[in-house]
Amino acid sequence: MLYYIGAISLILIGMYAVLTKKNLLKIVVGLSIVDSGVNLLFISVGYVKDATAPIFSMPSLTADKMVDPVPQALVLTAIVIGLATTAVALGLVIRLYDHHKTLNINKIRQLKW
């Protein structure tokens, strides 16, 4: 339960940053916090009490005493993809800064009409 609360708070805090912060880098930070929160949520949904990791390294381990491996497999790739997208976002931020000499989205008015 504690894990759920932690994950949901991370998601909400990240979303708050995305919705209200004016600094582009802060928005990307917020996105990466949301990312972490979602990952934690996934893994904690897959957890089973008193179970082991889903690796048959010893003959004594049995399948019904293991946590759900599917969320783990999903989160594993999600983290790597998250890094890649963050990198792309930061590249865009650098480019925008280059062009406008500011990170404040209120001053970057190219999308506005």
Binding site: V18, L19, T20, I27, I105, N106, R109, L111, K112, W113
Partner: peptide, 14 residues
């Protein structure tokens, strides 16, 4: 509705 502000769009999603 389209203010050109990405955050506003994010707000619409929420």
């Amino acid at each position: 509705v389209y203010t050109g502000n990405g955050q506003t769009y994010a707000m619409y999603v929420i």
